[in-house]
């Protein structure tokens, strides 16, 4: 069985993002970029399927600029067998990525696609669902446990206030939640070996896909700043402030 994993290059989770002064977006200059954390979990899950003998091949796909090769190399070091870069300088939105992934699925015919439940930059949580809809595949989102059966996958989903267990027919799209697994570190000997693993590069046009953005960003603004705390001198002053300023007592 083939497993396809989608990995997005995003601003590192720990970076303090700054909004550009013209409010057109966030500053990406000299900002550390990493694999989307949910996609790290997707890569780990695919590699575990392979290690358990349930998958023969793990293919990692990334859509974006040529710099995305870095994230593909990371996935290869973690255990993926080969990479596909769909290179474009366009800003790719969920629908565009879903179309690209659909084209790759037509080409590679994997039984399972695993992707993060959302990317931490756009926070859209749309790509996996759109891909399933475009291809008419089963979809199991927000997975915290995946078990493969005969032509099916049984997936435990994290839903509001509990868990839901569903069985989907393959091929299917699975999106990962935080608790699915704990990704391993990239081992240096494996990074050395990964240098020899192949990465194929296509453009969206090669795949017959149009990734022109369909959504226009009007404005990006930072969250409201919190006021600094104050030190009160006496209990009386505290009570007074709670009563008359905060109006909570």
């Amino acid at each position: 069985m083939k497993v396809l994993v989608a990995a997005k290059r995003v601003v590192d989770y720990n970076v303090n993002v700054r909004v550009l002064s013209d409010e057109s977006g966030v500053d990406l200059n000299n900002v550390k970029m990493s694999v989307n954390p949910f996609d790290e979990i997707a890569i780990e899950e695919a590699v575990r399927l392979k290690e358990a003998g349930q998958a023969e091949e793990v293919i990692v796909v990334s859509v974006g600029t040529s710099a995305c090769q870095e994230q593909i190399r990371t996935a290869l070091a973690l255990g993926a067998d080969r990479g596909i870069l769909v290179e474009t300088d366009e800003e790719v939105q969920p629908l565009g990525i879903a179309k690209v992934l659909k084209a790759i699925m037509d080409k590679e015919q994997p039984e399972i696609v695993i992707a993060g439940k959302q990317a931490i930059d756009g926070d859209n949580s749309q790509t996996g669902q759109m891909l399933a809809a475009l291809g008419g595949y089963g979809q199991a989102t927000f997975a915290s446990e995946v078990e493969l059966g005969d032509g099916t996958a049984t997936v435990t989903r994290e839903i509001d206030g509990g868990l839901e267990t569903i069985t989907v027919k393959l091929p299917a799209v699975i999106t990962t939640d935080l608790r699915l697994n704990e990704p391993r570190y990239a081992s240096l000997p494996n990074i050395m070996k990964a240098k020899k693993k192949p990465i194929d590069t296509y453009t969206p046009a090669d795949l017959g896909v149009d990734v022109t953005p369909s959504i226009k960003t009007l404005k990006v603004s930072p969250p409201a700043e919190r006021q600094a705390g104050i030190v009160v001198e006496t209990v009386e002053e505290l009570v007074d402030k709670l009563k008359n300023e905060a109006k909570v007592i």
Partner: peptide, 18 residues
């Protein structure tokens, strides 16, 4: 170092969190 045996294994962070 791996070749001369002064390291046995190693990992590298792939993100700020790691």
């Amino acid at each position: 170092c791996l070749e001369e045996g002064t390291v046995i294994d190693g990992v590298v962070s792939q993100s700020e969190q790691q």
